[in-house]
């Protein structure tokens, strides 16, 4: 099914396997009568698609640029303006900035690989978070509206952001950045189409 949808969408991304679950699901103690648990579609077995590598590139470049400018400003204040505090402690400030830069670049880098999404027949799921993981699912029959936004920075890297809104408030909305514009638009059309069908039923 997923392959079919991917073909439909024309998503040209490599298939990315989620870590295989190391538990036997049949053994789980969980009662929920009247519905055969084992036949339910499971989120755990979905193959998730990663985001475009360009997003990582873009994010890393922007992080670098941000810190380069920050460091340049500190250097300028330290050596040209000769600000009192910075003349004495400037090196420590620079060291701190460098450490922050390394930290944020690392988080950006590893965090990127934790972001993934999947589209199923009836819902969209997005995973994110390096340390604090979260995985959010929105059923299409609860989608309020859907939009694709391409910012000036996005355009430089051939990226776009897909936003899926529900009535559940801003915390429950999905914002998937790092999709190619054509993919994002196809996803949007697919979701809108699905939402429409559900409405008619």
């Amino acid at each position: 099914m997923r392959q079919y949808i991917l073909n439909y969408l024309g998503v040209r991304s490599t298939i990315y396997m989620q870590e295989a679950p190391n538990k036997q699901f049949a053994e789980i103690e969980f009662s929920n009568h009247q519905l055969d648990e084992t036949t339910l579609p499971r989120v755990a077995y979905i193959e998730y698609s990663p985001l475009e590598k360009n997003l990582l590139k873009a994010n890393l470049i922007w992080t670098t640029l941000f810190f380069t400018i920050g460091i340049a400003i500190v250097l300028f204040l330290q050596y040209v303006i000769k600000l009192d505090g910075l003349v004495n402690y400037g090196n420590w400030v620079l060291l701190g900035l460098m450490a922050l830069f390394i930290l944020s670049a690392t988080i950006t880098y590893f965090g990127f690989f934790k972001k993934s999404y999947a589209i199923r027949e009836k819902d969209i799921i997005f995973n994110t978070g390096l340390f604090w993981r979260s995985s959010t699912a929105i059923p299409f029959n609860r989608v309020q509206h859907c939009e694709v936004s391409i910012g000036p920075i996005d355009r430089m890297f051939d990226l776009s952001e897909l936003k899926v809104f529900t009535a559940g408030g801003s915390n429950s909305d999905l914002k998937i950045e790092g999709l190619r514009p054509d993919t994002a638009n196809r996803l949007k059309d697919y979701i809108v189409n699905k939402t429409g069908i559900d409405e008619e039923e």
Binding site: F25, I28, F30, N32, L35, E37, L40, P41, R42, V43, A44, K122, D123, A137, P139, F140, N141, R142
Partner: peptide, 14 residues
């Protein structure tokens, strides 16, 4: 259990 509830609820909504 969380995963299982997740699946069940999604199924119910959908």
């Amino acid at each position: 259990v969380a995963e299982s509830i997740f699946d069940t609820f999604l199924y119910r909504i959908e």
